[in-house]
Nucleic acid binder design. Sequence first.
DNA 1: TCTGGGGTCCTAGGACCC
DNA 2: TCTGGGGTCCTAGGACCC
Length: 437
Amino acid sequence: MNSDPITIHSWPRAILHLDADAFFASCEQAIHPELKGRPVITGKERGIVAAASYEAKAMGIKRGVRLSDVKKICPDAVILPSDYETYSLFSLRMFSIIRRFTPDVEEYSIDEAFADLTGLRRHFHGSYDLIAQQMQDTVEKELGITVSIGVSLSKVLAKIGSKHRKPRGITMIPGREIHRYLGDLEIGSVWGIGPNTAAFLRKFGITTALDFAQKNEAFVTKHLSKPYIEIWHELNGRSIYPVIKESKSSYQSISKAKTFTPPSKEESFVFAQLSRNLENACIKARRYGLAATRLVIFLRRQDFADSGAELKLTCPSAHPSDLFGPLREGFENIYRPNTLYRQTGVVLAGLVAETKVQYTFFDDTAKIEKMSKVYDAVDMLSEKFGKYTVQHAASLQTNTQSQHEGERGDTPQRKQELFKGENKRQRLGLPMLDVDV
DNA sequence: TCTGGGGTCCTAGGACCC
DNA sequence: TCTGGGGTCCTAGGACCC
């Protein structure tokens, strides 16, 4: 089954990659100026470091370190729960600043963006370097966070640039200097080359990005599959990956998972967690007008072994009431008594647009429509009053335990200052629900 | 690095059809 | 009843990303 052939984009492109520095921690420092200059860490809710400010990094604190260790290394550290909602607002602001320079912007992740600057020098009466500087300055001035930028001939090279000097770095990698940046770069640090591929390449004596880039095409096509051939081209300055403007509007799958501490062996508790995952996944699916045709469930044991089950649904749906039957069935297949579980999860897969859902003769259409209304109302209540206003009885058991998760009574005043004039829904870019209960 | 919670794309191989 | 070549669709699973 062969997919699209590799096409190289028209000659030389100027691709910019922007990467915010210690994004979560920087947002916290921007909102709480008294934290500037202090070691700040987020991740309180899960007990390990999600992000560390540069002050914390300087003391040797990295992502993934246990918070108990953090307190030993750095008793002064300010430890906060991650507040994704606020970070999303900063993120949207950051993207809109980048769009002042060009509409050709890809929102790659919450703290990263690509932009295609090809041909913009005339318009800005300056070099790409100057454009990058202006962008960096504007973000810093308006949002109070710093970013690092790389500009080069391809996305892979631009990423290498933005990582090369941090924080607040700007790195231009013109074609003639590519080798200078690839020579010191370990092959496993290249975007798209994971531990498996790095180990495979090392068997051929390839240890740096330069070693790989200098292999000839015959070698690459003989030993590697499409994604890696593409990376090889990109490392050599031939742009393969386009900057994709369209923001995400559809999903292939929607998943929800949650780890609980301490782990549990109690069947009803584990199933309640799973039910909650299902409800959350369904809320998201309905928000995008999607319905699932397959339901995947999985349990992760304390030793990190996974077991899972996949159920095919007779009729596409994003309503928990339709999915509880299959959920229960799958759960009973994989749950083993006297086993400690640490995580549950569900995946809604085979998503189809809600409008495409076809009812068979045997489905009770009237009942289905009634259920749709009920769930629209639930979604609206969740938006208005917080997520768990209305719950299925099956999920209720999770509440007692969720109380020891990180609480956050934040500073609404400050947030309102920063984002005044936009209600939460607009700020987060969510569509308006049009519900008549 | 002992382990969050989301996602994506690619490939091989089987089922099915002519 | 058997044989062969070739196409399409679907799915499981691997690998990778932030």
